[in-house]
Design a protein around this nucleic acid. Structure first.
Lengths: 205, 205
DNA sequence: CGGAAACTGTACCAACGGTAGGGAAACGGC
DNA sequence: GCCGTTTCCCTACCGTTGGTACAGTTTCCG
């Protein structure tokens, strides 16, 4: 059972790289088995079909994504007592992390699935939906914490504000890729950070 | 030459719908010729290969996109003298337009191309880049106009601010699709609108 | 009426997703 | 050390798809 998971992981690794670069249709099973050093039968032993591969890929991706957010924002929470400062710091840490990726963000699987909508079954689309909802809950909780201390200058729906974090990240990934400017994504995050600061901090200067 | 363009347009229409729903890999030529009522030879008479189809599709999409932005923001400009008010109105008009789409935004081809990056040649990626740069120029010009009248409360790079419009739209499209909440995109646009208002308007009650 | 444009028809090819089934190492538990 | 399960490999096959080649035909327009 140990060896099997190892091979499975190797397939998923190769698949993730290829899917993020070429989309699902552009990723061939032959290519994956060549990369992994496995046979076709071996591949279909692990995954019934391409749809199952996609599902496993997305599940792993989302878990990893959550882990990264957990780390960054719990770290930020440790460093700053104030919820607003913690959130702003978290955004900065995230921006820096994204800035350090030499080739820019490799792409978001959730977005890839969205742009292939009708190619996948409901299972996968539901995982995707749950991922977006988890983002909403995560950032929504942070904004609620902030609002217990600060009063927004403009009344904004918390969920919509929370969604804005995901929106900026997903949109930033796309724009970075379209423009071929990897630094665009971290920059956009910092612009959003400025907006959030502006929204909650009382007038200064 | 008239009839040819008509057929070409029919192919592109069918292709656009399919590509936005299933991605490029998920769109088969057989499917397109069935929809169009044409033969395979007929298809390849119009497009050398799938890559050329993608190119024509993207070019048409970007042109149409530009036209819509032209209409909305020139209309907004007519209705409001002030550049800030014109921009805010434009965002609202755009949000309403997106809100009126019964099934939500069908998806952005620029984003689809980005998530298929390595599947296309440099031509297409360059068109994509130019499209994003045109957005930057368009909204950048608006923000420059605004800044001639208003002083932003926080110093922000104009290009990054301009990119934020595209970021929110692209990200909003993805989130709307992932969440299966078509109203999310127009809502996100309005959140961004609030941020812009907050950024430029002097403190009020 | 003629020539170009806009196709159709047929035949073919390689790559790909997927299926079927028979085997064979490798590992773990007893 | 034996046994069964897991984890694969091998071979052969199928339908679909993107794409090629090319000859023939219809349609349009000047």
């Amino acid at each position: 059972m140990r060896k099997g998971e190892e091979t499975r992981a190797k397939i998923l690794d190769a698949a993730e790289i290829s899917v993020l670069a070429k989309g699902f249709g552009g990723t061939s099973i032959d290519e994956l088995i060549a990369e992994t050093g496995i046979t076709k039968s071996g591949f279909f032993y692990h995954f019934r079909d391409k749809n199952e591969l996609a599902k496993a890929l997305l599940e792993r991706y989302v878990e990893n994504d959550e882990r990264i957010y957990d780390e960054i924002f719990s770290r930020a929470r440790e460093l700053a007592d104030d919820p607003l400062q913690a959130f702003l710091l978290g955004l900065k840490l995230l921006s820096e992390l994204l800035s350090d990726l030499p080739n820019g963000h490799p792409g978001c699987l959730v977005a890839v699935i969205c742009s292939h909508e009708r190619s996948f079954d409901r299972d996968i689309q539901e995982i995707n939906r749950q991922a977006a909802l988890m983002w909403r809950r995560r950032f929504g909780a942070m904004f609620r914490d902030i609002m217990r201390v600060y009063r927004p200058r403009e009344p904004l729906d918390v969920d919509q504000l929370a969604d804005m974090v995901s929106t900026v990240i997903e949109g930033g990934i796309i724009l970075s890729k379209a423009l071929k400017e990897p630094k665009n994504l971290p920059a956009q995050l910092l612009v959003f950070r400025t907006f959030v600061r502006l929204l909650f901090q009382p007038a200064a200067t």
